[in-house]
Write a protein that binds this DNA or RNA. Structure first.
Lengths: 346, 346
DNA sequence: CCTGGCTACCCAATCGATTGGGCAACTCGA
DNA sequence: TCGAGTTGCCCAATCGATTGGGTAGCCAGG
């Protein structure tokens, strides 16, 4: 009785209709319409017979055919820098879950933060006729978003925001502020920031939140203590090397806007014989599952990654429904661990 | 001139045909057929005019319509335990790349290694009418694969193999052997294995490769020195705790079949004041990007994850073309780092 | 002049679901 | 008893691309 979709013969609306001696359109209305329409379309008894047979035959509607007619695919396209970035992978899990709940499926593609690829992948998604896009790799000042907007492509941003467009992000400014408060209260007065990529709002906002709050607290941050870098371990390592080379006296605390950069920085510090959590405090961002499990557990700002993904889906749904939506920022919290547990001698 | 797909009016074959005063079928043959058919369908001059106009109008064929007619979607479904597992994420990047090259798009879904979810996601993929499946979460002895086979659903396995089905995997047995050779040659004689999940061929094969080779070398491994565990850091931590609690004398080397489990184990060792790479050697598996960047760099078996993904796509393509395909095992290599650099006193 | 074979196209059915418009048959109120 | 309304269903067009089967016009050979 489990014939269903693949390999063997596929059951169609017409098959069901023939078998019951009624018209396919009636079957369609019964199976795929809101209860009001379905009520008007058939008697309760007929409806029950139809539903029963559909179940028995393992009927599943052909999304190709339905989409062809309705011009909607119930497909969302998701573009991320790279899925092998744990942060994005987890957001995608949130997307996957929320999309399934709304009856949508998702495509994901990696753009590797390359503007060329962003365009290519976007077009490729549109060629697949996705209903809308969730863009997780937005670059500040990129023209692509304005173009998409002009073409009336429905989309929302995720993870990174760009002013003027709907987005689901962490409140990264607040996250940076939390770190500033923490390090300041631990007695640190000489800090450096591994700031990430300047085209990403995550990097910019976290850095700005930290630096602005630090100054508000009365601290100073020399220009060369803010080092832009890639988001991965290698980037963090290089940035830490630069800081060690150019900042004197040596900072007593490092804020990396990303856990992986923080891990890279920890490696660099260690190579220099500097003890993390003792000689130098390190704080990361995102609280990925690794942070707590590292040999020296890493303090990190926990961002609600799953919720960001879920929220992005909900926002996109509302955009698809024609609503106007405002950016959403979800609140982060700080997890203090050994890497920044001990303060500076005051 | 960039009208193209979304929002605004979509250009169809008929539009092109009308504008040129020829029949849609002719346009179709010109744009979407091999050169032989296209040659027969129109003069070179007409063909050029069609192609030119298609470019100018930004024509892109509607996959819904094409799929409805041809019964093929050029879609591959990919099922993985979780995309937030770096190993699978990287394999997926390989898939994404290879699939794009062949003109396919991919769906990914997470099954979380839950048999119920595996079924649900599989059906959901089939309901979307994917042409075939890449299954990255196969359980040894699961009935699902046999069912799919019986239903003639085209699929290949990836990452984990199950005898009797086509698969693209690492040669995990060889990987385990490499580790055994390495640790033995370093003088270790008392070792333990963090073996992973017994339903996954990766875990079973790596463990078997290690244990069998170890015995062949003349070593012994007591029963309680092989601890099955989850693949994540927490699982590795728990397994290491169990080993420390139950194995005496304490092993001088640990082989974890997965880098994350290895990292968890390193954390546990450290909590016990045991120095990794000095008191106890640790070796992981997969050589994820983190291994080399850890404060104490982790020795690990490098598995060709990208290639495994690419290979899976190529195998599936061949299955879709009706060929018979045999399992493919890609060769791993060992990367020795600080965590197992120093041997045991001989 | 007739036949046969090209060349360069056209025609129309088809895939499966959706949906606006019908329309019988029956009910009910006046 | 008539008209209006409701119930329960059918009809047929449609979405866009594909594809097996034509066919008109032309040229060459016999």
């Amino acid at each position: 009785m489990e014939e269903s979709t693949a390999g063997g013969r596929t059951v169609t609306l017409k098959d069901l209709a023939n078998e019951l001696g009624i018209h396919p359109s009636t079957v369609s209305r019964i199976l795929h319409s809101g209860s009001e329409v379905a009520r008007g379309a058939a008697s309760v008894a007929t409806a029950e017979r139809v539903r029963e047979l559909a179940r028995k035959r393992g009927y599943s509607p052909d999304p190709q055919a339905a989409g062809l007619r309705t011009r909607r695919t119930r497909l969302m396209g998701v573009i991320v820098p790279r899925l092998s970035d744990l942060v994005l992978a987890i957001m995608y899990e949130g997307i996957d879950e929320a999309a399934a709940q709304l009856g949508y499926s998702t495509f994901v593609m990696n753009s590797r933060d390359d503007p060329e690829e962003q365009r290519r992948k976007t077009e490729s998604m549109l060629a697949r006729r996705v209903d809308g896009l969730i863009i997780g790799d937005a670059h500040l000042g990129s023209g692509l978003l304005r173009e998409l907007s002009a073409r009336k492509v429905p989309f929302v941003l995720m993870n990174r925001r760009v002013p003027g467009f709907p987005s689901a992000t962490c409140d990264d400014v607040l996250g940076g502020e939390l770190v500033a408060d923490h390090l300041w209260s631990k007695g640190h007065r000489n800090v450096a920031v591994i700031a990430g990529e300047p085209y990403a709002s995550t990097a910019v906002d976290r850095t700005a939140g930290f630096v602005d709050r630090w100054r508000a607290l009365g601290g100073t941050i020399p220009r060369n203590a803010v080092v832009w870098s890639r988001f991965d371990t290698a980037g963090g390592r290089e940035a830490a090397e630069a800081i060690l080379a150019h900042c004197s006296p040596r900072p007593t605390a490092l804020f990396a806007v990303n856990d992986f950069a923080a891990i890279g920085a920890m490696g660099a510090l260690r190579s220099h014989g500097i003890s993390v959590g003792h000689d130098v405090a390190v704080v990361g961002f995102n609280d990925t599952s690794l942070a707590a499990e590292l040999p020296i557990p890493l303090s990190s700002v926990r961002s609600p990654m799953l919720d960001i993904g879920r929220t992005a889906v909900q926002l996109l749904k509302r955009v698809l429904d024609g609503e106007h939506v405002d950016p959403v920022r979800l609140e982060p919290s700080l997890c203090v661990r050994e890497s920044s547990a001990c303060g500076n001698a005051v």
